[in-house]
């Protein structure tokens, strides 16, 4: 997994709920192995003001409520392109679609305990100098990339991971966006260059 290379990671929590903001801050202070600078943004339902905030704020990680960009995939992709170094997380309060959560680097569910939440965020953070690269592929994206690179079809991957083909396609789009590699053959070379698969597997 590609991670943030920082000794102090700045997080922007965009949520209207004070309980969520304070809760996450306490969880990170208590359970995380890393140091965070936590900042809050209270107007997440206005995408434009969020964009302005991100221009002035140097966040490494932004946590958004899932419904902010639900069914607004294009707008979110545009924002991600605008801020390619940011890692994106989301909080799920209710019903969700796999397609929506596939756009994020990690997802916090209401059923997650404090340690799990801290682990999910820690997973993106490593000490300075250990950064693998800046493509920010999530674990699920890497799983899908490996499948594609060894010649599996979208359907085979969907069956194995118990997700829909639609979700696989959506992940694939994200992989291409992050790596700037569009073709299957190109992705295979990419996977080999990052030691994700062995050349003998092809």
């Amino acid at each position: 997994m590609n991670k943030i290379a920082k000794t102090k990671t700045s997080i922007l929590i965009c949520d209207k709920s004070m309980i969520v903001k304070e809760g996450l801050t306490v969880i990170l202070e208590k359970y995380s192995n890393n140091n965070f600078l936590v900042d809050f943004f209270s107007e997440p339902y206005n995408v434009e003001s969020l964009e302005n905030e991100l221009h002035t704020n140097t966040s490494d990680l932004v946590i958004l409520p899932l419904d902010l960009f639900s069914n607004r995939n294009k707008e979110f992709q545009k924002l991600k392109r605008m801020f390619p170094s940011i890692h994106w997380g989301t909080i799920v309060y209710g019903f969700y679609s796999n397609e929506d959560i596939s756009m994020y680097d990690f997802t916090i569910f209401m059923t997650d305990d404090a340690e799990t939440i801290a682990q999910k965020i820690d997973h993106l953070v490593v000490d300075s100098g250990k950064s693998l690269s800046s493509e920010n592929l999530t674990d699920r994206e890497i799983e899908i990339l490996k499948g594609l690179a060894v010649g599996k079809s979208n359907k085979q991957i969907a069956d194995e991971l118990k997700i829909s083909i639609h979700t696989v396609i959506s992940h694939r789009k994200n992989i291409s966006e992050k790596t700037s590699i569009r073709t299957l053959q190109g992705l295979t070379v990419y996977a080999i260059s990052k030691h994700l698969i062995d050349v003998n597997c092809i």
Binding site: S133, I181, G186, V189, Y190, S193
Partner: peptide, 9 residues
């Protein structure tokens, strides 16, 4: 893709 593989990866 060829160009990006060389430039980025």
């Amino acid at each position: 893709d060829l160009k990006n593989l060389l430039l980025k990866h």
